[in-house]
Every structure is written in structure tokens, then in C-alpha cells.
């Protein structure tokens, strides 16, 4: 069944359609949350919260206002931001300009090293390796990079999620990638080529 019809049926109270929507998006939404928390239990909790909120707000979904995936990801993002709002340490004065944008994107990549949070053991290494590079980006640029490369969302949905035009998203992605290209050490690239990322 096509997505629009599924959504329409779910809004009309068709349990089967809602179940199918869940099947389609459960893994993707969980992955979205996991990439930003690197903690399995937390991502599960937030995914459950997001789906519950989606169920409660199903009637408020308006197809003319945006696509269903963007609406769903938006709900997940709110759950994420709400969670990290309590985790984020006090903002330093010199970072005040950055935090205005950062407050919109809560994720584990912008938490301070000393912040009290839990990562999956296997992901801590990855986090420590990538954090200097991803955290160096603005919150918005990092979000676009992750949405495009890890969540594999098309620019159209990224634009809906971030409230920007597709062209602006592509431009932001291009700039962010350019920054990463310069910041990533040669060793990482060699390790990647040799398929031994742990060497970085």
C-alpha cells in the first residue's frame, strides 16, 4: 500500500495501516535516534516516546504541510532535544553565538567530554574518533551531514526537517563536507582505505 493511503487509513482509525506504518519506520526512527545518542537503551526509550507522541498527534498531521516521514522525524527530534536539554552543560560565554542554533539539535556529538552520559561500549571508540571532527561543525551542518550520510534521507526530506530549501541543504552539506575533508587526519583515511578504522 502506498504511503499516502496508509497514512490516510491510519488517521481514519485503521489499526492495520498504523501497524504497517510502524513496520516501515521503526528501524529508521530508531537508527535516527541511535546515531544521535549512541546508546541502545536511550534510543529505544526515545523511539517509544516518539511513536507514542506520533500516535497521540496523528490527527494533527496535515499532508499539505509536509510529508509523513518528515513529520515523524520531527517528532523524534523533539523527543531527542527534550532529552538532551537536560544533559547539556552550562553554556560558556564564548560559545553563546553557537548555542542559539545548537539548542535546536540535541545530540551526543555536542556534549562536552566531561558530561555525565552513557555510550555503548562499542560506540565509545567511534564517538571519540569522530567527535573532534563532527563537533567542529555547526550543529546544523552536522545534522545535515548525519541526515544525508547516515540516515540516508533525500534532500527533499532534509529540507522539510530543517526548514530550509533543498538548495540550501545541498550547499550546507557541501560546505560541511569540505570542512571535514580538511579536518580529518590522513591516518584515518589510510586506516579507512585499509579497512581498519580502529587505527584512527
Amino acid at each position: 500500500m502506498e504511503l499516502e493511503r496508509l497514512v490516510r487509513e491510519a488517521v481514519r482509525g485503521n489499526r492495520r495501516a498504523f501497524g504497517e506504518l510502524y513496520d516501515r519506520y521503526a528501524k529508521r526512527l530508531y537508527a535516527y535516534l541511535y546515531y544521535r545518542t549512541l546508546n541502545r537503551e536511550l534510543a529505544e526509550d526515545l523511539a517509544a516516546e516518539a511513536f507514542l507522541n506520533a500516535l497521540e498527534k496523528l490527527l494533527s498531521f496535515r499532508p499539505e504541510a509536509g510529508s509523513f516521514p518528515a513529520w515523524l522525524y520531527g517528532i523524534a527530534r523533539h523527543a531527542l532535544v527534550d532529552h538532551f536539554r537536560g544533559q547539556r552543560p552550562a553554556v560558556s560565554l564564548d560559545g553563546a553565538g553557537e548555542t542559539a542554533g545548537a539548542a535546536e539539535y540535541g545530540d551526543v556529538w555536542e556534549l562536552a567530554d566531561g558530561a555525565d552520559f552513557t555510550l555503548d561500549v562499542l560506540e565509545r571508540d567511534r564517538w571519540e574518533r569522530l567527535k573532534p571532527h563532527l563537533a567542529a561543525l555547526s550543529a546544523e551542518a552536522r545534522e545535515i551531514i548525519i541526515l544525508r550520510l547516515w540516515d540516508e534521507l533525500p534532500y527533499r526530506q532534509i529540507a522539510e526537517l530543517t526548514g530550509k530549501s533543498e538548495a540550501a541543504c545541498k550547499m550546507a552539506f557541501s560546505r560541511a563536507l569540505n570542512v571535514l575533508r580538511q579536518s580529518m587526519p590522513l591516518l584515518c583515511l589510510v586506516a579507512w582505505l585499509l579497512a581498519k578504522p580502529s587505527a584512527c
Binding site: Y34, Y35, L130, L149, R181, M184, C188, L189, W192
Partner: peptide
């Protein structure tokens, strides 16, 4: 750079 990010996707 893209390959590095994809290879390190959690």
C-alpha cells in the same frame, strides 16, 4: 571524507 563517515556509521 564521505567514505570515512560511512565506514564509521554507528
Amino acid at each position: 571524507a564521505i567514505g570515512e563517515l560511512l565506514a564509521n556509521r554507528p
